[in-house]
Amino acid sequence: MLNLAKFLFEDAPKLIEGEGDVESVSSVEVWNHSDFLCQNYVLKGLVDSLNNVFCEKKTAKELWESLDRKYKTEDAGAKKFLVGHFLDFKMVDSKSVINQVQELQMILHEIHGEGMTLSESFQVTAIVEKLPPAWKDFKNYLKHKRKEMNIEELIFRLRIEEDIKSSERRLFYLVATKTNVVEHGQSSKKRTFSTSNKKLNM
């Protein structure tokens, strides 16, 4: 708005010996004043702790380059951290698969927020590949499907499969508990019967 942005990229003009006329000196002074304004507008946008660090820069360009180096390096570090977190993410059998998929989606959302775009087909494939060991058969089933899925369809299928697995576990637990009760009940009856026989024999 103030036409000061150019001073973030321009070098300060220098007076050449023998050209110290009033016009040249005046133009350098005008440039210095505009550069000073630009530099102070940038510093005003920083928090006090950063303002104290960067206020020693001599020109707006020097200030801007210094800020650019600092935050581009930090930005690159953040991107590397997120990508590493995504690659290292492993699903486990002890947690809900849907909850783990949601965690993975949060990481993917942060990756997109950093300006790195991943296609939906890549995301779907990555989620399938990260399914836990107990889901091996279902993973193979998904990998051999010819029709491509989007994220919503994949989550829908995973939710159904997780519900089926939960029902199977509950059924197995009920059958195991019932079998255990029946077996213990029969052994109790046998013990009671053998005790009764002993009393009769006596």
Results as ranks from 00 to 15, higher is better:
N52P: 07
K80Y: 09
E103K: 07
L118H: 08
Y71D: 08
L131T: 03
Q100A: 05
I160T: 13
K147D: 12
E74W: 07
F122D: 14
F138S: 09
F122M: 06
V53P: 03
H144A: 10
E56K: 15
E114G: 11
P132Y: 01
K79R: 13
T59M: 02
W135K: 01
Q105T: 10
K136N: 12
V97Q: 00
F81H: 15
N51W: 08
N99W: 07
E120V: 08
Q123A: 11
T125K: 06
V124H: 10
A76H: 11
E161N: 04
F81M: 07
H144Y: 04
I155D: 03
D68A: 13
E74D: 12
I111F: 00
W64R: 06
E129V: 14
V83M: 15
H109P: 08
A126L: 09
L158S: 05
F138V: 09
K61V: 00
K143C: 06
H109Q: 12
L158Y: 00
M149K: 07
L63I: 04
L67Y: 01
I127F: 03
V124L: 14
E110C: 15
R146Y: 10
E129M: 10
V124P: 04
M116A: 13
E62M: 04
H109N: 12
G115D: 00
G84M: 07
Q105V: 05
I151R: 06
F156K: 09
T125Q: 09
V83Y: 11
S96L: 01
L108E: 10
A76I: 14
G113I: 12
I151W: 03
Y141D: 11
R157K: 15
W64D: 05
T117V: 14
K130G: 01
K130H: 04
C55Y: 07
E129Q: 12
K147L: 12
F81P: 03
E148G: 09
K70M: 14
A126D: 08
K145E: 13
C55F: 10
V83P: 12
K95D: 00
D88K: 07
W64P: 03
L131I: 04
G115M: 03
E56F: 14
A78S: 13
E103C: 06
P132A: 01
R159T: 15
R69F: 11
A60F: 02
Y141E: 13
K139A: 01
L104F: 11
F86E: 12
V128Q: 00
L142E: 05
A60D: 02
V53R: 00
E62I: 09
M106H: 14
T73C: 05
E65G: 05
K58Q: 10
H144I: 06
L154I: 04
C55A: 08
R157P: 01
T73Y: 06
Y71V: 08
E103V: 10
K136Y: 10
D93W: 01
E161P: 01
H85S: 15
K79V: 14
A134I: 14
N99M: 14
G113T: 12
W135T: 02
W135N: 01
H112F: 13
D75E: 15
E152G: 06
L118S: 07
A60W: 02
S66M: 08
A60S: 02
L118K: 07
S94R: 02
G113M: 15
K95Y: 05
Y141L: 09
